[in-house]
Design a protein around this nucleic acid. Structure first.
Lengths: 153, 153
DNA sequence: ACGCTTGTCTACTAAACAGGTAGAGTTAAA
DNA sequence: TTTAACTCTACCTGTTTAGTAGACAAGCGT
């Protein structure tokens, strides 16, 4: 799962992307529009500023704006930034590789093999999408529970 | 990230799959071969027994074995079982859907749209692979850091 | 029936992390 | 020089993770 903080981060960035080239957006505006606790959002945005993804303007009429055009901010980058890695296990990360604790030698670990493949598929998709993409949300739910019935129930 | 427990679970099941139809495998054998703390493994295996994925045999010459052929145990099922869902956000789960806290209405949430698509890609891959598949681990690392250079560095 | 080996179950705990909050300080436009 | 912003360090509280302890139950072989 993505942490709540990562989700807030993504939604905040989406909001800034929506207001690209419209001048700084105030923190409260983001907090209200995106339903993010105000105080927590200060922490999140400050980090994004430190990381260079967002620019802040202090003083009156200040606020935040993206540091680069939405089309240049890929979702993969955002998740790498906030989570450290796209991978589902430390040893399957391509940019922040770490040995897993209590594991087999990496060359023998099938879980690692699987997770490397999975990571690459996820990366391919997340690096294709940027903050500039309009994402259409699918219609309701219901008829989508199919395909889940399996040997296990 | 998958929790350590989920990783242990998968490796334990792989071990049982490797010894399919060779009689019960003792807990200690699994613990040693897979480098899993013995006491913790009892918890993990007991849960798998309760969930019907593994059968246990008590008494002398007892141990554990898979309840069904390895080819019928998909990785997707294992992760659904231990994590509850494949999705990266609660609202993007197909079999354990939940509203996210402090979010937008689901129909408007672009993060949800993105995560639904991602979930489906992950599911497609994880439901294609089973415990019967030999997974080849890729060669070393090194030349694989390419493709990471981006607007962000 | 006995004893050994092996799994089962409930409870507990230490440490880390998640998700926030408080509040004093700094900037810059009007 | 006021005031509406952002910034920074510190703190807090609840939950989850990763285990451990220890008494108990069940088969197998003799």
């Amino acid at each position: 799962m993505l942490s709540q903080k990562t989700r807030y981060t993504i939604r905040a960035l989406q909001h800034l992307a929506d207001h690209w080239r419209q001048g700084p957006v105030r923190l409260d505006a983001v907090a209200e529009a995106q339903n993010i606790p105000r105080k927590f959002l200060t922490v999140i945005l400050s980090e994004l500023v430190r990381e260079g993804l967002v620019i802040s303007h202090r003083g009156r009429d200040g606020g935040y704006e993206l540091a680069l055009p939405p089309v240049d901010v890929r979702y993969g980058d955002i998740i790498r930034l906030t989570r450290g890695s796209l991978a589902l296990v430390p040893c399957a990360s391509r940019n922040a590789h770490e040995h897993c604790a209590n594991c087999l030698p990496e060359a023998e670990c099938r879980l690692r093999g699987l997770m490397l493949t999975l990571r690459d598929e996820m990366a391919a998709m997340l690096d294709r999408m940027t903050l500039a993409d309009a994402i259409t949300v699918e219609p309701p739910f219901a008829d989508e529970m199919a395909g889940e019935s399996a040997p296990l129930g």
